[in-house]
Write a protein that binds this DNA or RNA. Structure first.
Lengths: 222, 222
DNA sequence: AAAGAAATTTAGACAAGACTAAAATAATTT
DNA sequence: AAATTATTTTAGTCTTGTCTAAATTTCTTT
């Protein structure tokens, strides 16, 4: 049924999906940056993925997933997020480490094992960072939310999702008890691009503007 | 500390270790057979492994692991067997399927996760097929035992270990309740290379001579 | 609109690891 | 012992995925 895809191809499709979710265009340089390979390497892989009809490509204009490519990307992301949650729940791996382990495991997970893990976890909907887990059929429920950096002061918010790419940030956030589903108040935004001050469990903590771009929240119903 | 080794190199070292355990000489053709690659491919990889001092090689005379090579082989085998047991215990994967899953997982298991799995399982000594799990320090306890095919009739034996390479055999053995630690009686050996008849849980079952080579037993204390 | 800067693609090279065909060596048979 | 057969190695090719350097195209600035 499924063709055998190299790990490299899987990594590219996932990266393209992720860039598509946040940027208008998926540029060669964005992929080069994200995957840690040279722009020339991206171009040559892009050519191959186009030939296989997994993406479309107009020269000098960026890249787009086809439905087939998107399906595969979402399968990989499903593997990744299921594994992240599994490692945390079943083996107690701290949330700042699950990402790098999952980067390797996502490529070796059989469908059978995917199902067993899914069942073990009770068919979960989000991973440890609050990111939605794609369904087997290639659909994914996306929650409506704002970046913390864009929230006005004096607002009560609920954390929805935290980017999993910076372990250091995750350790800091974990240390202050800031996880998905946590409610907190945005107290103030310090001037001159200073930090955002949030209050949770009665204490105030600073969060850098840059970090606050990667924390997604929604207005809490109060 | 540990150098990054390719999956291919890990597979070769493991294969060499396994051939060393059962054959006198580790020949190019044996490795070619075991790994499913051409003899020429084996020769070229052998050259590389020699250069890295992981094996020694005399032209036309076969190959031998160095202590460094053996240590790595045992680490991979440790990963493999821990994963096999983990998949069975934690996720209920049937024992005839754990091997092929572990073939992939063994290469992506971090030391941290290895330790977590080891701890979860209570520091086990054998995998689901009865094979000993190498220790972290690269040592392994080998039990003294005989192949079922060599046992005289009318002997009470205890199953020690069953080869994990043939899922079909494992399903058959599982179906009749023949697992490691099971006690059974060798009833008779049918003539003309016929099957061996064993009795367990009050019933008699035939086991082909060839299969019986891959079932290791020890005399039970009765 | 032209010039300079930035991004992208092309061209060509390289490493890993596989292959086939042919040559060299070892083992077996007569 | 010579001849045949089997095994191993060598030589050379291919594919995948990477790289650098150079050429092309697009974007930005003046």
């Amino acid at each position: 049924m499924e063709k055998m895809l190299s790990q490299s191809i899987e990594d590219y499709l996932k990266a393209i999906y992720e860039v598509e979710s946040s940027e208008e265009k998926v540029s060669t340089s964005a992929l080069s940056e994200k995957l840690g390979v040279s722009p020339a390497s991206v171009t040559s892989m892009v050519k191959k993925l186009s030939e296989r009809k997994l993406i479309t490509h107009k020269r000098y204009q960026g890249v787009k997933l086809t439905p087939a490519g998107r399906k595969i990307a979402l399968e990989i992301i499903r593997h990744h997020r299921l594994v992240e949650l599994y490692l945390k729940e079943a083996l107690g791996v701290p949330w700042d480490q699950v990402h790098q382990e999952a980067e390797k495991w996502e490529h070796v997970l059989s469908e059978d094992l995917e199902d067993r893990i899914d069942k073990f976890l009770g068919y979960p909907v989000t991973d440890p960072h609050g990111s939605p887990i794609p369904r087997r059929d290639g659909t994914m429920i996306v929650r409506q939310c704002d970046a913390l950096v864009d929230v006005e002061p004096d607002t009560l918010v609920k954390v929805v999702e935290v980017s999993d790419h910076d372990p250091e940030l995750l350790r800091y956030l974990g240390g202050i008890g800031l996880y998905p589903e946590t409610e907190m108040t945005v107290v103030s935004k310090q001037p001159f691009k200073g930090p955002i001050i949030v209050e949770l469990t009665g204490k105030e903590y600073p969060i850098g503007r840059n970090a606050a771009k990667y924390i997604l929240v929604e207005k809490a119903n109060n």
